[in-house]
Amino acid sequence: MKNILLSGDGGQGVQLIAKILCSVAFDAEQHVTSIPNYGLEQRGGVSLNFIQIDEAPIVYPKFKTADLLLILSPQARERTIQFVGDNTIVIDIADYAEVIKEAQVPRRSQNIFFLGVLTTVLEKENIGITKDAVLILLENMLSKKAGWEENKKSFEAGLHMNLS
């Protein structure tokens, strides 16, 4: 697992969860690159973040095929189809509609729910991303802000997704 592509609409919090995952991997002594990509829109356009995490130094911050792809909106799906390869693990919000409803994940915490889902996948990869480390960082960043309890619950709901 080296190439991670996060995608959604501007304002959905893609850049925030990219920052969290990268910071945790950096703290775990991994080599990390993260490059945001978006258009002119402040909100509503497609927002991407290309992340690479590796034990070896990374020479180029972009990639052609994602190992793990997060899709949080229909237009993000359309934009990122070109990065899907035979072995890409795709986490698509369209497949989680029922779960999100059942777990009562509010719209503004959906990115944090998917941070939990991503953490579950990445924890198996031995690249320094663990549930505990992500939760600690999340707590440092968000616990003093409004909606922390909802975010924490959403993260935990994401962690309980079985993706096998």
């Binding site: 990268c22 950096f26 991994q30 080599h31 990390v32 690159t33 993260s34 490059i35 945001p36 990374i58 911050p61 972009k62």
Partner: peptide, 9 residues
Amino acid sequence: GFLLKTRQD
């Protein structure tokens, strides 16, 4: 912008 916006160790 790729080089400038990339956050890297």
